[in-house]
Design a protein around this nucleic acid. Structure first.
Length: 602
RNA sequence: GGGGGCGUAGUUCAGUUUGGUUAGAACGCCGGCCUGUCACGCCGGAGGUCGCCGGUUCGAUCCCGGUCGUCCCCGCCA
C-alpha cells in the first residue's frame, strides 16, 4: 500500500475547519493507550501531536495492524478528521478538540526502545516539566534528544531568530560575506585551534577566534556594510555557557560612529525578543565602565534590580570601629548596599553566620558588616562603635528607611570591595526575590579603558584595533596609557555580556603606536599583522562594528538552562562529543602525511 | 592548572551513617485483561560487573588508596 504524502499536513495544522475531511499525516508514535478494543494513539511530528483512533468495529485488520505499533515507530497514515464529543475533548492539547479516525496505515520503520523517554506527553500546563536525564546520555543520542518537542521548539525558534536578523540587516543594506575558516593564527587573545598544513611543512592554519581582521579588510575594500552569522573557535577551558565553537553575529560598517551602532542594534534586539513574546524598549541606557564597576561591581551590570553600591568611605574616616577606621585611612574602600524592607525576614543569625561567614568569604571577601534600620536607628552587633552622626550619615547615604538591611564590605583593596560586594548584590538579589524574571534589562557599557595591566605589561582590554580616545597620541607613561579610554562598547542584557564591539583605528600611525605600546617590535608586527597594517595605508575609511554571541542570545530569549539547549550538536563540558566521539586518534598514515608524530605523555 | 560533588536496573533516584542471608522504588520495557482514554486503569514478568583496579576484612555497593568518566566553582576566555 502507498499513501500519497505530497499533501501531508502537520499534526498541529489540523483544526475543526477540516472536520470530516480526509488528511494524510506522517511522523512517530508518541504514546499508546490500548483499551483492548478501542486503541488511542498520539502521533507526533515536528509541529506537535494529534490523537489517532483505531476502532476494530470499523476495520478489524487495521486495528490488528495498529496493535503492533510501539513508541517511536515511524509511520504514515490516512484518516478522517472528526470532532470529538464535548466530554472527550482535551483542553491540554492544541488539537484536543479533534481526532483522526485512521483508514490506511504504513509502518516505515520499527524503533528500539530509546534510552530515554522522548514523548513529552503534550501536557501544556507545565511545558517545562522535568526532563532530568544525564546530559552525556542526551548528547550520545542527540538525534533522539532532538526528537523531543521542547528541543524542536528551541531549534525552530533559533531558526526564526536567525531569519529575523538576516531580514533586518538586509533591510538596512548589509551584505552577507563569508570569511575563511582556515586562517592565520593571531598572537593575542584566547588560545587558537590549530590545523596542520599538508602542503606546507611545519605550518599551521588557525581557526578564527572571530573574523575581526577580515571584516576590517572588507571595509578597506569599500563593501561598506558587512555581516555574517559565523562560527568562531577558542581553545579555552569550558564553562557552562561556553563552547569551543560558538556562533556570532558579526557586523561592521563604514562612515559610522557609536550612535549608528546603537540605533542599528536596539530595534534588532527588540525584534528578536519579540519573537518569543518578550518586550523591551529602547533606547537602552548607557553606563560607563567606571560607573558599572563602582555601582554594580562588574562590567556587565544586571539592571533588572536596583540595590546599587554606595561608597561610604569618606563618612567613616573617624569611626571607632577599628577595621573600618584602618581601611578608611589607608586608601581602602567601604561600600554598602541596601536590601529594601527585609529586616524582619533576614535574621541576625543568617546575616552573621550565613552571609558574613560563609557567602562573602566564598566570594573572596574577608568579611561583611550588616545593620538593620529599626525605628529610624541602626541595629547590629557593632553599631555601638558608630557615632549618632555616623549612623545618620549612613542612613542618609544609602537612602535607607525602616525595615531596610544595610550590608557593607570593606577592604584596603578597592577593586576587591567592588568585586565582592557586586557578587553579594547578585546573590542577595537572586535569593531574596529582587530580580523580576519577566523583565528584560539591556544596556550599553561604554568608556572602557584602552589598556589594562597583565603580568605587569600593558595589554589591550578589547583588542588592538580599537580606536583610543584623543589622549592616546599624547600619552607617554604607563599611567598615561592606563588612563586612556577606548571607543569600545558592550551590549549587556540581564547581567550577561551578549556582545561587544568598537570604533576601529583607521590610520596607520595610531595603529603603529598601539602595537608599539603593547611592546611589539617591528618584526613582530610585520610577521603577525603585516598584511593588515599595509592595508590600512590604502585609503581606509573610518569604521566600526560589533559581534553578538548568538548562542547566549537565543538561550536568553528561550530562557534555557544553558546554551547547549539551543545548539543542535554541542560538545560537553570537556569539549568532547559523546555522539561522534570527537576528538579521536587518527591513523599513522594521516599523521605521516602531515609530518606529525604524537609524543606520548607517560 | 587548583578545589569540590557525583558514578547503583533502560532512565531518574533510594540504600552505604553502624560492612553481614535474596540490593529496592518510580517511570520505561515485555505478556495478559480492558470500547472514550489522553500521566488511562488492573494483574503478572523480565531487567544489576553497585564505573574500573587494588587494599583492609572471615566477609566490601558500603571503609581506604589509585584510576577513569562526568558535573560545579576558581584560574583562563584580546
Amino acid at each position: 500500500m502507498t499513501i500519497e504524502l505530497n499533501n501531508r499536513r502537520y499534526c498541529s495544522d489540523l483544526s475543526l475547519d477540516l472536520n470530516n475531511q480526509t488528511v494524510e499525516l506522517a511522523g512517530w508514535v508518541d504514546t499508546i493507550r490500548d483499551h483492548g478494543q478501542l486503541l488511542f494513539m498520539h502521533l507526533r511530528d515536528r509541529s506537535g501531536v494529534v490523537q489517532l483512533v483505531f476502532n476494530p468495529e470499523d476495520n478489524k485488520d487495521l486495528h490488528h495492524q495498529a496493535e503492533q505499533l510501539r513508541s517511536e515507530y515511524c509511520v504514515a497514515l490516512k484518516g478522517i478528521v472528526i470532532e470529538r464529543d464535548d466530554e472527550a475533548k482535551n483542553p491540554h492539547v492544541p488539537t484536543g478538540m479533534l481526532e483522526v479516525h485512521v483508514s490506511d496505515l504504513i509502518l516505515y520503520n520499527k524503533a528500539k526502545t530509546p534510552p530515554f523517554l522522548i514523548s513529552e506527553k503534550s501536557v501544556a500546563e507545565d511545558e517545562h516539566q522535568d526532563f532530568n536525564v544525564d546530559e552525556d546520555l542526551r548528547l550520545t543520542y542527540r538525534y533522539l534528544d532532538l526528537r523531543r518537542h521542547s528541543m524542536q521548539h528551541n531549534m525552530i525558534t533559533r531558526h526564526k531568530i536567525m531569519r529575523e536578523i538576516r531580514n533586518y540587516l538586509d533591510e538596512k543594506g548589509f551584505i552577507d560575506i563569508e570569511t575563511p575558516v582556515l586562517t592565520k593564527s593571531t598572537p593575542e587573545g584566547a588560545r587558537d585551534y590549530l590545523v596542520p598544513s599538508r602542503h606546507h611543512d611545519n605550518c599551521f592554519y588557525a581557526l578564527p577566534q572571530s573574523p575581526q581582521m577580515f571584516k576590517q579588510l572588507l571595509m578597506v575594500s569599500g563593501l561598506d556594510k558587512y555581516y555574517q552569522i559565523v562560527k568562531c573557535f577558542r581553545d579555552e577551558d569550558l564553562r557552562p555557557n561556553r563552547q569551543p565553537e560558538f556562533t556570532q553575529l558579526d557586523l561592521e560598517a563604514s562612515f559610522i560612529d557609536e550612535t549608528y551602532i546603537y540605533s542599528l542594534l536596539e530595534p534588532l534586539v527588540e525584534r528578536v525578543f519579540k519573537l518569543a513574546g518578550k518586550s523591551l524598549q529602547g533606547p537602552f541606557p548607557h553606563i560607563t565602565y567606571e560607573d558599572a564597576m563602582n555601582r554594580y561591581g562588574n562590567d556587565h551590570p544586571d539592571l533588572r534590580f536596583d540595590m546599587t553600591m554606595v561608597d561610604v568611605t569618606d563618612l567613616l574616616k573617624n569611626v571607632n570601629y577599628k577595621i573600618f577606621n584602618t581601611i578608611a585611612n589607608n586608601n581602602g574602600a567601604i561600600k554598602g548596599i541596601k536590601v529594601s524592607n527585609k529586616a524582619s525576614e533576614m535574621s541576625k543569625n543568617m546575616l552573621q553566620e550565613e552571609l558574613a561567614k560563609k557567602v562573602v568569604p566564598k566570594f573572596g571577601g574577608k568579611g561583611m558588616t550588616w545593620m538593620k534600620v529599626i525605628d529610624g536607628k541602626l541595629e547590629s552587633n557593632i553599631v555601638q562603635f558608630f557615632s549618632e552622626q555616623e549612623q545618620a550619615d549612613l542612613i542618609h547615604a544609602l537612602e535607607a528607611t525602616d525595615n531596610d538591611v544595610l550590608l557593607f564590605v570593606a577592604d584596603t583593596n578597592k577593586a576587591l570591595v567592588n568585586d565582592v560586594l557586586g557578587r553579594l548584590r547578585l546573590y542577595v538579589g537572586q535569593k531574596w526575590g529582587f530580580i523580576d524574571h519577566s523583565k528584560i534589562a539591556a544596556c550599553w557599557v561604554t568608556d572602557f579603558p584602552m589598556f589594562e595591566l597583565k603580568d605587569n605589561r600593558l595589554n589591550s582590554m578589547h583588542h588592538p584595533f580599537t580606536q583610543p580616545d584623543d589622549s592616546f597620541m599624547r600619552a607617554q607613561t604607563t599611567d598615561d596609557f592606563l588612563a586612556v579610554n577606548s571607543r569600545a562598547y558592550d551590549l549587556v542584557i540581564n547581567g550577561e555580556e551578549i556582545g561587544g564591539g568598537s570604533i576601529r583605528i583607521h590610520d596607520s600611525d595610531t595603529q603603529a603606536k598601539i602595537f608599539q605600546t603593547l611592546g611589539m617590535t617591528d618584526d613582530d608586527i610585520k610577521q603577525k599583522f603585516g598584511f593588515f597594517v599595509e592595508a590600512l595605508t590604502y585609503g581606509t575609511p573610518p569604521h566600526g562594528g560589533l559581534a553578538l554571541g548568538m548562542d547566549r542570545l537565543v538561550s536568553m530569549v528561550l530562557d534555557t538552562a544553558s546554551i547547549r539547549e539551543v545548539i543542535a550538536f554541542p560538545k560537553n563540558r570537556v569539549a568532547f562529543c559523546p555522539l561522534t566521539q570527537a576528538p579521536s586518534n587518527v591513523g599513522n598514515q594521516q599523521l605521516d602525511e602531515l609530518k606529525l608524530s604524537c609524543v606520548k605523555n607517560v
